[in-house]
Amino acid sequence: MSKLFKILLAAGGLLGGSILGNSQSKIQTPGAELTISYLRGTQKLHDLQASPMIYFTDYNGVHLDYKRMKGRNRWEFGAEAKTGHMIAPALGEREFQFEEGGEGFLLIPTQYFGEVSAGYQRRLHQTEKLESFLGINLRNQIHYADGLAMNTWAMNQLGLSIRYTHLMKLGQRHQLLGDLQLPIFSLIARMPYSNVVSEPEKSQVKSFLGESEMTAVHQLQQPELRVAYRYRLAHRSSLELGYAYDWMSYSQPQSIKKSNHELALSWVYHFQFSPTN
């Protein structure tokens, strides 16, 4: 009897502990999250340095993001890589040859692009359902395509942006997010006016980056808006569907205008839980 009582007591203790643990975890908030996203988007590019025509790139990509939240502060580090073929709809697919009678080849350049970023935000406002954050984001974006009008096309942009994020909680499982960022200062490298990068005893990458120009929001505009819906699948994971739009305009050495429409399907892993503040 005594043995049975001890077993029941132990089982009850375990069950109670487990229930208590669960109820505790429900009022805990994650201190960090890791997000992996599949990206699908369309980039439209009108770079007079490369072509008078507008090129479309339907691309696929992945994004990795680590976010640390502590008190009123949020730190975020991200990296992404994307690739797609470039087509000018007005020109269609074109087949060229190197010489008369030579073998034909389709001129469809492939673009590779991506970014790394690091940001900090501080909470501005918090209610039971709403939260807003304001901060900065340092981001390097790189673009490279070989064969755009039979040339190498490249661009690198290191930008410091102001970033505002708005969160809306809809019950226990649903969340809406709005995110806006705008680069204030950028260090931008573009192909030079001559479209030639060649200097003695220097790699082409070094020569290209060596021509970077510091610019500010009066010359380079690139607002980016992102909205997302997040569904809490479980204690440690969420699913997120996001849409982002960004538009860029810069005038040196010739006008470039660019826009991106992008969908992101993400899985979020929450960890480092701690009691809610």
Binding site: M53, F96, A149, S194, V196
Partner: peptide, 19 residues
């Protein structure tokens, strides 16, 4: 000189000396 290429509105491509 190096001769990068330029695209024309009708899709032709031209190479020219920019140096």
């Amino acid at each position: 000189s190096d001769n990068p290429k330029w695209e024309l509105p009708n899709g032709w491509i031209v190479a020219m000396s920019t140096g």
